[in-house]
Simulated assay, not measured.
Amino acid sequence: MKNTTTELYEYSYDEDEYPYSSNNPYNNDDAAPCSLWDTWTFVSNFAPLAYILVFILALGGNILVLCVIRRYRQSRHNPCSFSLTDTFLLHLAISDLLLAVTLPFFAVQWINEWIFGLLACKIAGGLFSLNVYCGVLFLACISFDRYLAIVHAVNISWRRKSCHAQLACAVIWVVCMGLAIVDMHYRDVVLLHGRNQQVCLVVFSQESSQQWQIGMQQVSLFLGFVFPLLVMLYCYICIFKALCHASTRRQKRRSLRLIFSLVVVFVVSWAPYNALRMTESLKTLGVIVNSCMLNKVLDVGILVTESMGLAHCALNPLLYGLVGIKFRRELAQMCKAVLGLHGCLGLDGWAQSRGSTRRPTGSFSSVDSENTSSVMA
Protein backbone atom coordinates (compact mmCIF):
# COMPACT_ATOMS: atom_id res chain seq x y z
CA MET A 1 0.00 0.00 0.00
CA LYS A 2 1.39 3.37 -1.02
CA ASN A 3 2.47 5.93 1.51
CA THR A 4 1.05 9.06 -0.11
CA THR A 5 2.63 11.35 2.48
CA THR A 6 6.12 10.54 1.26
CA GLU A 7 5.49 9.94 -2.44
CA LEU A 8 5.29 13.15 -4.49
CA TYR A 9 5.90 11.73 -7.93
CA GLU A 10 5.67 8.55 -9.94
CA TYR A 11 8.91 8.00 -11.80
CA SER A 12 9.24 5.88 -14.91
CA TYR A 13 12.25 4.57 -16.73
CA ASP A 14 12.86 6.02 -20.16
CA GLU A 15 15.89 5.58 -22.49
CA ASP A 16 17.88 7.93 -20.31
CA GLU A 17 16.21 7.05 -17.03
CA TYR A 18 18.56 6.64 -14.13
CA PRO A 19 18.15 4.24 -11.23
CA TYR A 20 14.94 5.01 -9.47
CA SER A 21 12.43 2.70 -7.86
CA SER A 22 9.50 3.72 -10.00
CA ASN A 23 6.84 2.00 -7.90
CA ASN A 24 8.55 2.21 -4.54
CA PRO A 25 6.54 4.65 -2.40
CA TYR A 26 9.39 5.04 0.06
CA ASN A 27 11.77 7.48 -1.53
CA ASN A 28 12.63 9.15 1.77
CA ASP A 29 15.53 7.31 3.33
CA ASP A 30 14.59 8.52 6.80
CA ALA A 31 11.16 6.87 6.68
CA ALA A 32 11.74 4.09 4.19
CA PRO A 33 12.09 0.39 4.89
CA CYS A 34 13.74 0.24 1.44
CA SER A 35 16.82 2.45 1.70
CA LEU A 36 18.08 3.95 -1.55
CA TRP A 37 21.34 5.23 -0.12
CA ASP A 38 23.52 2.39 -1.49
CA THR A 39 21.88 2.72 -4.90
CA TRP A 40 22.47 6.44 -5.14
CA THR A 41 26.06 6.03 -3.96
CA PHE A 42 26.68 3.51 -6.74
CA VAL A 43 25.01 5.79 -9.29
CA SER A 44 27.12 8.78 -8.24
CA ASN A 45 30.32 6.76 -8.66
CA PHE A 46 29.50 4.74 -11.76
CA ALA A 47 27.42 7.00 -13.99
CA PRO A 48 29.87 9.92 -14.47
CA LEU A 49 32.75 7.61 -15.39
CA ALA A 50 30.64 5.55 -17.80
CA TYR A 51 29.07 8.55 -19.52
CA ILE A 52 32.32 10.48 -19.92
CA LEU A 53 34.12 7.42 -21.31
CA VAL A 54 31.38 6.75 -23.85
CA PHE A 55 31.31 10.46 -24.71
CA ILE A 56 35.04 10.59 -25.48
CA LEU A 57 35.08 7.39 -27.56
CA ALA A 58 31.87 8.18 -29.46
CA LEU A 59 32.90 11.77 -30.12
CA GLY A 60 36.26 10.80 -31.59
CA GLY A 61 35.04 7.82 -33.58
CA ASN A 62 31.98 9.44 -35.14
CA ILE A 63 33.76 12.69 -36.00
CA LEU A 64 36.36 10.56 -37.76
CA VAL A 65 33.63 8.77 -39.73
CA LEU A 66 32.06 12.10 -40.73
CA CYS A 67 35.42 13.47 -41.88
CA VAL A 68 36.18 10.39 -43.97
CA ILE A 69 32.71 10.41 -45.55
CA ARG A 70 33.05 14.11 -46.36
CA ARG A 71 36.46 13.60 -47.94
CA TYR A 72 35.24 10.62 -49.92
CA ARG A 73 32.23 12.52 -51.24
CA GLN A 74 34.29 15.57 -52.21
CA SER A 75 36.90 13.44 -54.00
CA ARG A 76 34.25 11.88 -56.26
CA HIS A 77 33.10 14.10 -59.10
CA ASN A 78 30.22 11.73 -59.74
CA PRO A 79 27.57 12.21 -57.00
CA CYS A 80 26.35 8.67 -57.68
CA SER A 81 29.50 7.40 -55.98
CA PHE A 82 27.83 8.22 -52.69
CA SER A 83 25.66 5.16 -52.12
CA LEU A 84 22.56 4.60 -50.05
CA THR A 85 24.63 2.79 -47.43
CA ASP A 86 26.91 5.80 -47.07
CA THR A 87 23.85 8.02 -46.57
CA PHE A 88 22.61 5.76 -43.78
CA LEU A 89 26.10 5.65 -42.28
CA LEU A 90 26.25 9.45 -42.36
CA HIS A 91 22.95 9.76 -40.50
CA LEU A 92 24.03 7.03 -38.06
CA ALA A 93 27.21 8.94 -37.23
CA ILE A 94 25.24 12.18 -36.75
CA SER A 95 22.75 10.40 -34.50
CA ASP A 96 25.47 8.78 -32.39
CA LEU A 97 27.28 12.09 -32.14
CA LEU A 98 24.19 13.94 -30.92
CA LEU A 99 23.56 11.18 -28.40
CA ALA A 100 27.11 11.45 -27.10
CA VAL A 101 26.82 15.24 -26.72
CA THR A 102 24.05 14.81 -24.13
CA LEU A 103 26.08 12.52 -21.87
CA PRO A 104 28.27 15.17 -20.16
CA PHE A 105 25.12 16.93 -18.95
CA PHE A 106 23.92 13.80 -17.17
CA ALA A 107 27.44 13.08 -15.90
CA VAL A 108 27.46 16.50 -14.22
CA GLN A 109 24.04 15.70 -12.77
CA TRP A 110 25.37 12.66 -10.92
CA ILE A 111 28.61 14.34 -9.85
CA ASN A 112 26.71 17.25 -8.32
CA GLU A 113 23.12 17.84 -9.44
CA TRP A 114 21.20 19.13 -12.45
CA ILE A 115 22.25 22.78 -12.71
CA PHE A 116 21.16 23.55 -16.28
CA GLY A 117 17.48 24.37 -15.74
CA LEU A 118 14.20 22.88 -16.92
CA LEU A 119 14.53 23.82 -20.60
CA ALA A 120 17.95 22.20 -20.90
CA CYS A 121 16.56 19.13 -19.08
CA LYS A 122 13.81 18.71 -21.65
CA ILE A 123 16.11 19.36 -24.62
CA ALA A 124 18.87 17.02 -23.41
CA GLY A 125 16.37 14.30 -22.51
CA GLY A 126 14.60 14.66 -25.84
CA LEU A 127 17.87 14.49 -27.79
CA PHE A 128 18.88 11.43 -25.83
CA SER A 129 15.62 9.61 -26.55
CA LEU A 130 15.57 10.76 -30.20
CA ASN A 131 19.02 9.47 -31.02
CA VAL A 132 18.71 6.17 -29.17
CA TYR A 133 15.76 5.33 -31.43
CA CYS A 134 17.38 6.75 -34.59
CA GLY A 135 20.67 4.94 -34.08
CA VAL A 136 19.23 1.43 -33.99
CA LEU A 137 16.83 2.12 -36.87
CA PHE A 138 19.66 3.38 -39.08
CA LEU A 139 21.50 0.14 -38.32
CA ALA A 140 18.44 -1.74 -39.59
CA CYS A 141 18.44 0.42 -42.74
CA ILE A 142 22.10 -0.38 -43.43
CA SER A 143 21.33 -4.09 -43.06
CA PHE A 144 18.37 -3.85 -45.44
CA ASP A 145 20.36 -1.91 -48.03
CA ARG A 146 23.12 -4.53 -47.99
CA TYR A 147 20.43 -7.22 -48.31
CA LEU A 148 18.99 -5.58 -51.44
CA ALA A 149 22.42 -5.09 -52.97
CA ILE A 150 23.73 -8.61 -52.43
CA VAL A 151 20.79 -10.99 -52.25
CA HIS A 152 18.55 -9.38 -54.86
CA ALA A 153 21.19 -7.44 -56.81
CA VAL A 154 18.92 -4.43 -57.04
CA ASN A 155 19.62 -2.34 -60.11
CA ILE A 156 22.49 0.04 -59.39
CA SER A 157 20.80 3.04 -61.04
CA TRP A 158 17.93 2.73 -58.55
CA ARG A 159 20.15 2.19 -55.55
CA ARG A 160 22.33 5.18 -56.35
CA LYS A 161 19.42 7.58 -56.19
CA SER A 162 20.17 9.05 -52.80
CA CYS A 163 16.65 10.49 -52.60
CA HIS A 164 15.42 7.05 -51.56
CA ALA A 165 17.83 6.96 -48.64
CA GLN A 166 17.14 10.58 -47.75
CA LEU A 167 13.41 9.88 -47.69
CA ALA A 168 13.89 6.86 -45.44
CA CYS A 169 16.13 8.88 -43.12
CA ALA A 170 13.59 11.71 -42.99
CA VAL A 171 10.82 9.28 -42.02
CA ILE A 172 12.99 7.82 -39.25
CA TRP A 173 13.87 11.27 -37.88
CA VAL A 174 10.22 12.37 -37.89
CA VAL A 175 8.92 9.20 -36.19
CA CYS A 176 11.63 9.27 -33.56
CA MET A 177 11.07 12.99 -33.00
CA GLY A 178 7.44 12.23 -32.16
CA LEU A 179 8.54 9.69 -29.56
CA ALA A 180 11.11 12.12 -28.17
CA ILE A 181 8.43 14.79 -27.74
CA VAL A 182 6.60 12.49 -25.33
CA ASP A 183 9.83 12.14 -23.37
CA MET A 184 10.25 15.92 -23.31
CA HIS A 185 6.67 16.44 -22.14
CA TYR A 186 7.04 14.26 -19.05
CA ARG A 187 10.61 15.27 -18.23
CA ASP A 188 11.11 17.54 -15.24
CA VAL A 189 13.71 18.65 -12.70
CA VAL A 190 12.83 17.17 -9.29
CA LEU A 191 14.39 17.10 -5.84
CA LEU A 192 15.56 13.72 -4.56
CA HIS A 193 14.19 12.98 -1.13
CA GLY A 194 16.83 12.55 1.53
CA ARG A 195 19.69 13.86 -0.67
CA ASN A 196 18.82 17.51 -1.38
CA GLN A 197 19.87 16.95 -5.00
CA GLN A 198 18.02 18.08 -8.13
CA VAL A 199 17.90 15.63 -11.02
CA CYS A 200 16.43 15.60 -14.52
CA LEU A 201 14.02 12.66 -14.81
CA VAL A 202 10.89 11.50 -16.58
CA VAL A 203 8.08 12.22 -14.12
CA PHE A 204 4.56 10.80 -14.11
CA SER A 205 2.51 12.77 -11.62
CA GLN A 206 -0.86 11.01 -12.02
CA GLU A 207 -2.01 7.41 -11.70
CA SER A 208 -3.53 7.59 -15.17
CA SER A 209 -0.06 8.25 -16.57
CA GLN A 210 0.90 4.66 -15.81
CA GLN A 211 -0.58 3.75 -19.18
CA TRP A 212 1.84 6.15 -20.83
CA GLN A 213 4.69 4.66 -18.83
CA ILE A 214 3.93 1.08 -19.86
CA GLY A 215 3.09 2.12 -23.42
CA MET A 216 6.34 4.00 -23.92
CA GLN A 217 8.32 1.11 -22.48
CA GLN A 218 6.72 -1.29 -24.96
CA VAL A 219 7.27 1.08 -27.89
CA SER A 220 10.88 1.47 -26.80
CA LEU A 221 11.29 -2.30 -26.61
CA PHE A 222 9.83 -2.85 -30.08
CA LEU A 223 11.38 0.04 -32.02
CA GLY A 224 14.60 0.16 -30.03
CA PHE A 225 15.42 -3.54 -30.03
CA VAL A 226 12.99 -6.19 -31.35
CA PHE A 227 12.27 -4.68 -34.78
CA PRO A 228 15.90 -3.73 -35.63
CA LEU A 229 17.12 -7.11 -34.39
CA LEU A 230 14.64 -9.03 -36.55
CA VAL A 231 15.60 -6.95 -39.60
CA MET A 232 19.31 -7.49 -38.99
CA LEU A 233 18.92 -11.22 -38.42
CA TYR A 234 16.84 -11.77 -41.54
CA CYS A 235 19.03 -9.60 -43.79
CA TYR A 236 22.37 -10.93 -42.60
CA ILE A 237 21.26 -14.58 -42.70
CA CYS A 238 20.14 -14.09 -46.30
CA ILE A 239 23.37 -12.26 -47.11
CA PHE A 240 25.51 -15.04 -45.71
CA LYS A 241 23.55 -17.68 -47.63
CA ALA A 242 24.06 -15.70 -50.84
CA LEU A 243 27.77 -15.30 -50.18
CA CYS A 244 28.14 -19.01 -49.51
CA HIS A 245 27.20 -19.70 -53.12
CA ALA A 246 29.37 -16.98 -54.65
CA SER A 247 32.45 -16.57 -52.45
CA THR A 248 35.66 -18.42 -51.73
CA ARG A 249 36.13 -20.22 -48.42
CA ARG A 250 38.28 -17.37 -47.09
CA GLN A 251 35.68 -14.77 -48.07
CA LYS A 252 32.95 -16.88 -46.43
CA ARG A 253 34.85 -17.02 -43.15
CA ARG A 254 35.51 -13.30 -43.25
CA SER A 255 31.88 -12.49 -44.03
CA LEU A 256 30.64 -14.82 -41.30
CA ARG A 257 32.93 -13.20 -38.72
CA LEU A 258 31.72 -9.73 -39.67
CA ILE A 259 28.04 -10.68 -39.70
CA PHE A 260 28.41 -12.53 -36.42
CA SER A 261 30.15 -9.56 -34.79
CA LEU A 262 27.51 -7.08 -35.97
CA VAL A 263 24.62 -9.10 -34.57
CA VAL A 264 26.33 -10.23 -31.37
CA VAL A 265 27.53 -6.74 -30.43
CA PHE A 266 24.03 -5.34 -30.99
CA VAL A 267 22.41 -8.10 -28.88
CA VAL A 268 24.98 -7.89 -26.08
CA SER A 269 24.69 -4.09 -26.01
CA TRP A 270 20.92 -3.78 -25.85
CA ALA A 271 19.36 -7.13 -24.83
CA PRO A 272 20.16 -6.92 -21.07
CA TYR A 273 18.82 -3.37 -20.84
CA ASN A 274 15.57 -4.22 -22.61
CA ALA A 275 15.13 -7.38 -20.53
CA LEU A 276 15.35 -5.34 -17.33
CA ARG A 277 12.99 -2.74 -18.77
CA MET A 278 10.48 -5.49 -19.49
CA THR A 279 10.89 -6.77 -15.92
CA GLU A 280 10.25 -3.25 -14.65
CA SER A 281 7.05 -3.07 -16.71
CA LEU A 282 5.83 -6.38 -15.28
CA LYS A 283 6.55 -5.08 -11.79
CA THR A 284 4.54 -1.93 -12.52
CA LEU A 285 1.62 -4.04 -13.73
CA GLY A 286 1.79 -6.18 -10.59
CA VAL A 287 2.72 -9.35 -12.47
CA ILE A 288 5.95 -9.54 -10.46
CA VAL A 289 5.81 -8.97 -6.72
CA ASN A 290 7.51 -5.74 -5.71
CA SER A 291 10.31 -5.92 -3.14
CA CYS A 292 13.26 -3.91 -1.91
CA MET A 293 15.75 -6.35 -3.43
CA LEU A 294 13.99 -6.30 -6.81
CA ASN A 295 13.96 -2.49 -6.82
CA LYS A 296 17.67 -2.39 -6.05
CA VAL A 297 18.51 -4.92 -8.75
CA LEU A 298 16.47 -3.02 -11.31
CA ASP A 299 17.87 0.36 -10.30
CA VAL A 300 21.50 -0.71 -10.51
CA GLY A 301 20.99 -3.13 -13.38
CA ILE A 302 19.22 -0.64 -15.64
CA LEU A 303 22.00 1.90 -15.15
CA VAL A 304 24.76 -0.60 -15.93
CA THR A 305 23.01 -2.17 -18.92
CA GLU A 306 22.00 1.25 -20.26
CA SER A 307 25.68 2.19 -20.25
CA MET A 308 26.39 -0.98 -22.24
CA GLY A 309 23.80 0.11 -24.78
CA LEU A 310 25.23 3.61 -24.96
CA ALA A 311 28.66 2.13 -25.64
CA HIS A 312 27.23 0.82 -28.91
CA CYS A 313 27.33 4.33 -30.37
CA ALA A 314 31.08 4.32 -29.71
CA LEU A 315 31.47 0.87 -31.32
CA ASN A 316 29.55 1.70 -34.50
CA PRO A 317 32.52 3.50 -36.15
CA LEU A 318 34.61 0.37 -35.62
CA LEU A 319 31.93 -2.06 -36.77
CA TYR A 320 30.65 -0.13 -39.79
CA GLY A 321 33.70 1.85 -40.77
CA LEU A 322 37.15 0.65 -39.82
CA VAL A 323 36.44 -2.94 -40.91
CA GLY A 324 36.17 -1.73 -44.52
CA ILE A 325 39.21 -1.71 -46.80
CA LYS A 326 38.12 1.41 -48.64
CA PHE A 327 37.37 3.23 -45.38
CA ARG A 328 40.87 2.47 -44.10
CA ARG A 329 42.35 3.64 -47.39
CA GLU A 330 40.42 6.90 -47.26
CA LEU A 331 41.47 7.37 -43.64
CA ALA A 332 45.12 6.81 -44.53
CA GLN A 333 44.90 9.31 -47.38
CA MET A 334 43.29 11.88 -45.09
CA CYS A 335 46.00 11.29 -42.52
CA LYS A 336 48.68 11.81 -45.15
CA ALA A 337 47.12 15.09 -46.19
CA VAL A 338 47.06 16.33 -42.60
CA LEU A 339 50.28 14.95 -41.13
CA GLY A 340 52.40 14.31 -44.18
CA LEU A 341 53.61 11.12 -45.83
CA HIS A 342 56.09 10.00 -43.18
CA GLY A 343 53.68 10.58 -40.32
CA CYS A 344 51.20 7.99 -41.61
CA LEU A 345 53.30 5.18 -43.08
CA GLY A 346 52.08 2.85 -40.36
CA LEU A 347 48.44 3.73 -40.95
CA ASP A 348 48.88 3.30 -44.69
CA GLY A 349 50.23 -0.20 -44.15
CA TRP A 350 47.30 -0.98 -41.85
CA ALA A 351 44.89 0.31 -44.52
CA GLN A 352 46.33 -2.09 -47.10
CA SER A 353 46.41 -5.06 -44.72
CA ARG A 354 43.94 -7.88 -45.29
CA GLY A 355 42.94 -6.20 -48.54
CA SER A 356 42.50 -7.90 -51.87
CA THR A 357 44.82 -7.51 -54.83
CA ARG A 358 42.16 -5.73 -56.85
CA ARG A 359 40.77 -2.31 -56.10
CA PRO A 360 37.54 -2.72 -54.12
CA THR A 361 34.43 -1.29 -55.68
CA GLY A 362 31.96 -1.97 -52.92
CA SER A 363 30.91 -0.15 -49.83
CA PHE A 364 32.55 0.55 -46.46
CA SER A 365 31.17 -2.71 -45.19
CA SER A 366 33.03 -5.87 -46.07
CA VAL A 367 29.64 -7.50 -46.57
CA ASP A 368 28.96 -6.06 -49.98
CA SER A 369 28.55 -6.76 -53.64
CA GLU A 370 30.43 -5.74 -56.73
CA ASN A 371 27.53 -3.63 -57.92
CA THR A 372 27.81 -0.89 -55.33
CA SER A 373 30.11 2.05 -54.84
CA SER A 374 30.45 3.20 -51.29
CA VAL A 375 32.95 4.46 -48.79
CA MET A 376 32.12 1.48 -46.53
CA ALA A 377 34.10 -1.03 -48.58
Rank of each mutant, 00 (worst) to 15 (best):
N3D: 15
N3V: 01
Y11N: 03
S12M: 08
E15W: 13
E17R: 01
S21N: 10
D29S: 08
S35Q: 10
T39E: 12
Y51P: 02
I52S: 03
I56G: 02
L59R: 01
N62P: 11
V68K: 07
R71E: 12
R71W: 05
Q74W: 00
F82H: 03
S83E: 04
T87V: 14
H91E: 08
L92V: 05
A93T: 00
S95L: 00
L103H: 07
P104S: 10
F105S: 11
F105C: 11
A107K: 09
E113R: 09
E113G: 01
I115K: 13
G117F: 08
K122F: 06
L127P: 03
F138L: 05
C141K: 14
R160N: 15
C163N: 15
C163E: 14
H164P: 04
A170F: 15
V174A: 15
M177I: 10
V190L: 08
C200P: 11
F204E: 05
S209D: 15
Q211R: 14
G215V: 04
Q217L: 07
Q218W: 07
Q218N: 07
L230S: 08
Y234T: 07
Y236S: 01
C238E: 06
A246I: 01
T248I: 01
Q251S: 12
R257P: 02
I259H: 04
V263I: 15
S269M: 06
W270G: 07
W270M: 13
A271H: 02
A275G: 08
A275I: 13
A275Q: 07
T279H: 04
V287I: 14
S291W: 07
N295M: 00
V297S: 02
V304C: 09
S307V: 00
V323K: 08
F327D: 01
R329Q: 13
Q333A: 09
V338Q: 09
H342N: 10
D348T: 15
G349A: 14
R354Y: 08
T361H: 08
T361M: 05
G362K: 03
S365D: 12
T372P: 03
S373M: 11
